[in-house]
Design a binder for these strands. Structure first.
Lengths: 216, 216
DNA sequence: AGATGTGAATGAGTTCACAGCT
DNA sequence: AGCTGTGAACTCATTCACATCT
C-alpha cells in the first residue's frame, strides 16, 4: 500500500482527532460526527478509511479505539521511534522538548553539539554529548531519526554523518539545501514559509513602511 | 486577484530561487533554466507567472531582478513586517532569531513573557517585556504579526490579547486549537506532523520495539 | 531561433448519491 | 433507520503542444 502525501496528512489529522475523542471517553463515532467535531469532510473520511480496509460498522459508525489502533499502525505511529537532535542551540533544545510529546511515538533520547560549552548540558531528560560521539550515540539508543538544528553550512556534513551513523530518516530545520541519498529520506522544513503565507493576508502595506533592501 | 494556497506556495519557492540567482549575479533566466536549477516544472512556472501578468520576454526569458520585485510585491514581501514573540521560552527565543532572516521581510522587534525571570533578557536585538505591556509594545512598534510560543493552555488567551492589541495576523506554534476571529487570521503550525510524515518512511518496526502506551 | 503565454487534453482529488450492511 | 463503502460526476490542478512574439 502506498499513501499519497495528501492522504497521509489527512490520516494524521484523523488520528489526532480520534485521540482527542479517546481522552473524552467517546467510543463510537460516525464520519458525520468526526466531520462536524473537527471540521472535516464526512465523505472524504469514509473514502480515505475505506481505502485502507473496512473499519466501520454500517448503521453504527467507527469504533474509536480500534480505528486509533489501525491508523497508528498504518502510519507507523504505534511504536517508539528514538530521535537524536544534532545541534543543541535554542532551536534544538526547544524541539527536543516540543517533539517528544507525540503521544509517545517519538522520543528524543539524545542530543549532540560541536560546541564544548554545550556538551554536558541536561536537556529534556538527556545529557548533551559531543558531535564526535554521534555514531556511538545512535548505536547505543537504536536511534532511527536525526533532527538537524545546526547552522546552514553545517547541515550537509551532519546529514552525511547521520547517514554514516545509521539513522533511517532525517528532519532538517536549517534553511540549507541538503543532498540526500535515497536510503535515508530527508525532510526539509523551512519555518519561514509560515510567515510568508501569513504575509499575504496582511493589509496592504502603507507607502511609508520601510522597504526591504533586496526588493529595490 | 486571489491566489490559491497551492500557487501561493509555489510563488514563494520561485521567489527564493530567484534570490539565490541574484546572489550569483544571474540576471536572465528561462522557465527551463529555473526548472532545472531548482527541480521545478517549466510549464508550471510559465503558467503561474503568466497568471499574474506578462513578466517574461519571449525568446529571452525572465529578468531576475524585475521578477523578484514583482513577486515580492505580490506576496507582500517587499516591506518590513514587524513581529512580536509571545512566550520567550526556548522555542520563542529560537524562532526570534530564526524567523528574522527572511530577507528582511519580517523583523522580530519585540517579545513578551509572563515569567518575571524572563523579563529583561536580551534576545536577538530586543529586551523581553512583561506580558502586561503587550498592547503598548504592539503600538510602539507598529507590530503586524504575533507569534504564539506559549504553553497550549495559554494559547487562546494570548491570541485574544494579540487581537485586542491590534495585530493583523497570528502564527500559533503551540499544539492547541485556538478559535480565531476572521479579521485576524490565525495560522496553526504543528511541528509534530513532520515527524509523522517521516515515520511513514521508516522501516517496518521490529516486534521487539516498545509499543506506545495509547495504541494498545 | 528561442522562449513565452495559452487553450486543449490529461490526470488527480473531491463531492455526490445511493446501494448494501447491520 | 442509520451509516458505511463505492462507482459515477464533477472540480481543480498539471501537463502538453503550439501559436505568438522578440
Amino acid at each position: 500500500m502506498d499513501l499519497s502525501p495528501i492522504i497521509h496528512n489527512r490520516l494524521c489529522l484523523y488520528l489526532r482527532s480520534l485521540r482527542r475523542l479517546q481522552e473524552e471517553d467517546v467510543h463510537k463515532i460516525s464520519s458525520q460526527g468526526l466531520a462536524e467535531r473537527f471540521q472535516l469532510s464526512a465523505p472524504q473520511i469514509r473514502k480515505d478509511l475505506a481505502q485502507l480496509g473496512e473499519f466501520g460498522i454500517r448503521g453504527v459508525g467507527y469504533d474509536v479505539d480500534e480505528l486509533t489502533c489501525r491508523l497508528s499502525s498504518i502510519l507507523r505511529l504505534d511504536r517508539v521511534h528514538p530521535v537524536v537532535m544534532v545541534g543543541m542551540g535554542n532551536l534544538g533544545r526547544a524541539l527536543a522538548r516540543y517533539l517528544g510529546f507525540n503521544h509517545g511515538a517519538f522520543r528524543v533520547v539524545a542530543g549532540v553539539d560541536k560546541d564544548p560549552d554545550k556538551v554536558g548540558l541536561q536537556v529534556a531528560g538527556f545529557q548533551v554529548r559531543p558531535s564526535s560521539e554521534l555514531k556511538r550515540v545512535v548505536q547505543e539508543h537504536d536511534i532511527e531519526v536525526g533532527v538537524l538544528t545546526v547552522p546552514p553550512d553545517a547541515a550537509q556534513g551532519n546529514y552525511n554523518r547521520l547517514v554514516e551513523a545509521g539513522v533511517s530518516g532525517v528532519l532538517n530545520f536549517s534553511p540549507a539545501r541538503v543532498q540526500a541519498v535515497p536510503e535515508v529520506p530527508l525532510k526539509d522544513i523551512d519555518l519561514r514559509i509560515y510567515l510568508e503565507q501569513l504575509a499575504y493576508f496582511l493589509p496592504e502595506s502603507d507607502s511609508e513602511k520601510e522597504l526591504v533592501s533586496s526588493a529595490s
